[in-house]
Design a protein around this nucleic acid. Structure first.
Lengths: 201, 201, 201, 201
DNA sequence: AGCTAATCGAGACGGTACGTCGTGTCTTTTC
DNA sequence: GAAAAGACACGACGTACCGTCTCGATTAGCT
């Protein structure tokens, strides 16, 4: 018998297990913090043997990083103006950092930064956000709204925007969580206005 | 005879041990990262029994937070102008986050933020920085340079400045470390100029 | 397919480890005495992780008691006469208390006796010896050599015989160890003769 | 000025402290067993600093042995006949092993036996009992009741008597404690009668 | 009355063992 | 061959004691 696209021998991976493991990892991390995030706990919560986890991920850090990635969902943003794009990105990130996955991402990024850079370099974790922002600046450049994505001002403004979000997520979580959709929009407008002024527009 | 302020009974704590432990804690953390930061290791490096550490700190996290505090040394800043003060503070923090203690402080602040835990609230770790910044804005208000420290713009600018520093420390460490004194001053001037523009000055 | 008596799931215990741990426990106890008998030491000597020990025994005392049990080897004794049986049992115990396991058994029995603790009741440790002696008296009763195993004289004689052995093991160890097979037999004959006289035979 | 018997300089030892420490040591041992017998605990219970203990005893084992000695009180026994003497000694030891100090003595003797014989050789702990028994046999020899204290039969009978008591203390404590004065006398008479028969008298 | 000196309580010190827990790997049966 | 279950060697955790040490305070005899 001929299989043009033969599957590997043996029992196939249980695709559902991936999901259960990832959810369990995020939940354990969010519940008990870094110190309490244990692989034994993840396996128990996911109803899975440890071997099934180690078949898929090298170690518990790698799992966590991938879990964060898997649950990130950057929106497509293209409003036609710099102001609109910034507004959309800022307000999305604002609510994203309030989600479990978003917040875990920040923590592991910071924790991994400066490490021997083995497992969770911020580049990896923040890659999606960086991509969204890069595209934003590229469109703005094409529209002639900014000199270019590598302009000093632009780079600093990017960092300030993202840093502002980071600090809000770290320090102002409760207040932030209390805001409704409208409140977050209001905040976003204010910040974006300041960024634009800073960029001289 | 009356001792209004008598020392507690028993052998007094060895003040030198405090120093050795704190240094060892920071060194171990910096050397092996969070995962490799072990209290056994700290004790060994400090040449101290574990009991001497647990006599002073509740657990290894508490020790780390206190170690960071103990080695922070915010400078007195009062140049007479908002621009001068911002410049001084920004460039101090820029180099501070490159030091061992400064960097560890960021990591434990982020790791502790949002924890149900109380141990490493960013309020504690960043308290000194917050104080310096508050005084800066208070002086600027007194001089009439800004409307007041609770003005929305001021609060956002503060967060952006600090967030910018945080991100630099996280992502741009190598580049930052490569800068000399002059380079850092140049960077600081640029950022401060943008902040001032954002504040409408 | 039906397994009426299926093995428990997971990797089975390593039976060889049991042996290595038990031998190591007895060796450590014999080598360093009670104070120097440490579970860390046992694990090291056995080439085993501590968890493997705690998987099998509740604590280091329990391990010791079981180790002693596991290495006891009461002989089958049935010579057909009371005198012959007593001789066989006495001389066996005489040499048994010179072995590592035998001696450790005495110590933990005494140490455990009277403890509120339940761990090392002499009933447990001496159970095998008690059984051998009970059977001896039962046979003698059946042969009509003694009134019965619960006769006061018999009970006291039993205690005296065992107590004599205990004291020899405690106080006369060196002299005892110096005796050869023939010497021990001679000693045993003498003691048994006295016991029989005491029993009025 | 001349002091034929001068006291050492400095503050004299507090004689009362000796007593409190010894009592505390016995009480702690009896209460928590060997494992729970801690010098810190003794100091706490005696209301004494640890240094005061270490000024008097080398270590906690030495203290325990001395404590047992200090609380032993062998009676003067001389009834004029072998039977009377044996009766007196046996019944005294019977109740002695029920006391705290008596029982602790047995335990540390056994535990110390076979040890590198450093601290609690049974010779030390049982010395008083041995002396009483030696004198008993010496008087019996003088009266012509036995051939001599080194006769094999005598040595074995001694060991059997003492061993019988040891085992009673270890195994039959509850029953023993339930006996009143008369009951103990009855038991003693029975055992002594058997011993005498064994000795051929 | 002042000096010297040992003892007292308290408790910190460098260590070591405890029993628990989590790691990442290995070994077993079942699917 | 993947799955679950769980044993394995290892090592850190935070606690408890050890026997030593350093304090200030006390208590004597000797000047």
């Amino acid at each position: 018998m001929d299989h043009s696209e033969s599957r590997p021998a043996g029992r196939p991976r249980d695709a559902d297990a991936d999901d259960r493991i990832i959810d369990a990892a995020l939940a354990e991390y969010a519940a008990h913090g870094r110190a309490g995030y244990s692989l034994n706990g993840v396996a128990r919560r996911a109803g899975v043997g440890k071997s099934s986890i180690y078949l898929r991920w090298r170690d518990k850090e790698t799992l966590l990083v991938d879990a964060v990635h898997a649950r990130a969902d950057a929106p497509e943003v293209d409003t036609g103006t710099l102001e609109g794009d910034l507004l959309a990105v800022y307000s999305w990130l604002l609510q994203h950092f309030l989600t479990e996955a978003g917040w875990v991402a920040v923590r592991i990024a910071v924790d991994g930064a400066g490490e021997d850079a083995t497992w969770a370099a911020p580049e990896r974790v923040g890659a999606q956000h960086a991509m969204v922002l890069n595209q934003l600046w590229a469109r703005a450049t094409a529209r002639g709204e900014i000199p270019g994505p590598d302009d000093s001002r632009v780079r600093i403004a990017t960092r300030m925007m993202y840093g502002d979000l980071l600090l809000r997520a770290m320090v102002d979580r409760p207040q932030l969580a209390a805001l409704d959709e409208a409140g977050r929009a209001e905040e976003s407008r204010f910040v974006v206005a300041m960024l634009l002024r800073m960029l001289g527009r």
